[in-house]
Simulated assay, not measured.
Amino acid sequence: MPAKLPSDIAGSLLDWYDRHARDLPWRSPPGAPRAEPYRVWLSEIMLQQTTVATVRPRFEEFVARWPDVESLARASDADLMAAWAGLGYYARARNLIACARAVTADGGRFPGTEEGLRRLPGVGAYTAAAIAAIAFGERAVVVDANVARVVARLFAIPEPLPAAMPAIRAATESVTPDARAGDFAQAMMDLGSAICTPRNPSCLLCPLATACRAFASGDPERFPDKKAKAAKPQRYGTIFWAEREGRVLLVRRPPKGLLGGMRALPTGPWVAAPPGLDEQPLAADWTMLDETVVHVFTHFRLELALAVGRAEAHSNAGEWWPAADIESAGLPTVFAKAAAAIRRAE
């Protein structure tokens, strides 16, 4: 483990945070009574792999509709999945409602410790630490991507990510204070977001610059070292727009797997070569559009052909949604892109 830095890291950072903390709807101001656990938990789940700018308005929509964990627990799975559309990583939405129901069944109060929080659906090590520190004031070591970057630079940790994470966690542990642990965690996040950015960090504005070993090295961007990303595999598929009497056929994706449980346009297989009209949802005189839609998932790149057809007969394979109001269907981003492209081509 890197030796603890000699300066008062926590004190310097908290002084900076008291003046520069971001105003976010799930936070309490620095030094104020701790934020409500429900709001902290909801924000942390939403913020996984998603930017603050994207989450802020969606968080406010969620708490306006479901202001507490009990009301969220009463939501239908379909309503929640539709409300989550566009946020991506849809397993989070399934875990969200499962967690809300578990908390409600246990009296409606979130556990106040990391250990207790880890037992909840969808709450991993980072999320449990963040909730424990921010909502309950427990001393916890909170390391997200921003914190990892700040600490890797502060201690000039040479190992590449992800191998460096044990050393980063140990270094974060060494500077985490007993008091104001939640403010300290959020200060680290804000510093990484606003000052200690991946490229062109504003080191001269950083409250920790005089203690930062990466800054002293003259090349702070060298930390943390990242391995080159492998190219994403390419897959192909076809999305089917089957219209009948002004309505378009939508299906519910299987509960398990990618985009599980979401309302969607029918699609054939996602495979290594264009599948054409394989696994079409019903018989129709299909026309392939010239335009394709590209969407990049975490583990692969998907290119989708667009097939449009007029359905002659009713089908019970899904639900028939008003085509002119397709935006209200709560489709995941990839299907919303396809719907928009098809509507433009009409």
Rank of each mutant, 00 (worst) to 15 (best):
A230P: 00
G276P: 00
R213Y: 00
L302Y: 07
S7M: 14
E114P: 09
A85K: 07
P121C: 01
Y17C: 15
L282R: 06
T127Q: 13
A100P: 05
P30M: 13
L277A: 06
S174H: 09
W241F: 12
L154I: 10
G122D: 07
A313T: 13
L13T: 09
A167E: 15
P198G: 13
F215K: 14
F155Q: 11
L205V: 00
D106C: 10
T113P: 02
A272D: 14
P275S: 08
A228K: 10
F300V: 08
A345K: 03
L277T: 02
L120A: 06
E327W: 09
A231I: 09
R22K: 08
Y90S: 00
E44Y: 06
A284Q: 07
D285I: 04
K227H: 10
F110K: 00
R310S: 09
F184P: 00
A307K: 00
S43C: 08
G88K: 03
I131H: 05
A329I: 11
K229H: 03
Q49C: 03
A323N: 05
G108R: 03
K229I: 04
A105N: 10
A85Y: 08
A324F: 12
P30G: 15
E327M: 08
D190K: 05
A64G: 04
A230N: 11
A317M: 11
G112W: 07
D18L: 06
L154Q: 11
P269D: 07
L249D: 14
A167D: 07
P266V: 03
E173L: 10
L249Q: 13
L42K: 05
M81Q: 06
V141P: 02
P30Y: 13
T333R: 01
W270K: 00
G11T: 03
D190E: 14
P67Y: 04
A341S: 05
L258K: 07
